[in-house]
Amino acid sequence: MVLILGSLQLGLLYGLLAMGIYISFRILNVPDLTAEGSFTLGLAVSASLTVAGHPVLGLAAAVLAGALAGCVTGLLQTKCKIHPVLAGILTMSGLYSVNLCIMGSSSNLSLISNATIFKLMYGWLPGVDKDICKLLIAALAAAIVAAVLILFFRTHIGLCIRATGDNEDMVRASSIDVHSVKILALAVSNSAIALCGALIAQYQGFADINSGVGILVVGLASVIIGKLFVRSDKVGRGLVISIVGSVIYRYIIALATSSSLFPAYALKLVSAVIVGVALSAPAWKEQMEIRRIRRGGKAHAEN
């Protein structure tokens, strides 16, 4: 029961990460590696402000910090014409120092004795089970962010972001500044990711400088798993499906680790394998199809 509820909580919280990845990888069609840095950035900002006694402010600040990180990558990509992958790596790498600085040059911050928004919730809803409280916050966060993003992508600027990922030439011809659109999209994506980090820090009660390692693969896995269940080009559905994918991913991981099939440290390898297999599935399918057609042709010739 604890595992079922815990995975659901984590899945919903990491749903924000999945939505952020969905925006950069699927909608904008740009591989953005800033995620690893901006996730930890959110974590660090939220943790240090929580220690200072402002858990809610910590979340808001994390959103802004994430947006800023996205802007930096966006500027490197567009105005400085650096390859998107390298631009993300540069920001991510630089953020490592920034994050350490925010956490007071310690690689670990504990929030055990501080009030987090989860603990505030226990206070507001006395008598309600703690796990239900946590679930409530996770569900609320996922729902609010999803709603805001869905509305955002229905606006003119949202449509511009989608079109930029589809055909940049056409966007430029429609008198829209492609550079600003890209920077904005990366800012939105990374602020969702940073908010995810911020919530996770308060959820688990500590912040670690290495929490972001491999987080990109986690987000990608969620997006891909979601896509396996529902295929849709509609952005709204895509965002919601990413959250669902994130929850399913958590259950897969919980199953894999609780069945002691894998040791806990194999988690990242398992995630990488899931993503690798899912991404190569279409290519395999095509190969099988070609082989099937060939075999059919041969049988036909022999008859």
Partner: peptide, 29 residues
Amino acid sequence: MRGTAPHMTIEENLALSYSRSKKSPLRFA
């Protein structure tokens, strides 16, 4: 292939270019 966004609908393509005459970026497309 150059003048339109292939994964968007006809309506969305037209809306995108039509709203270039409008200023507000946050209006519904």
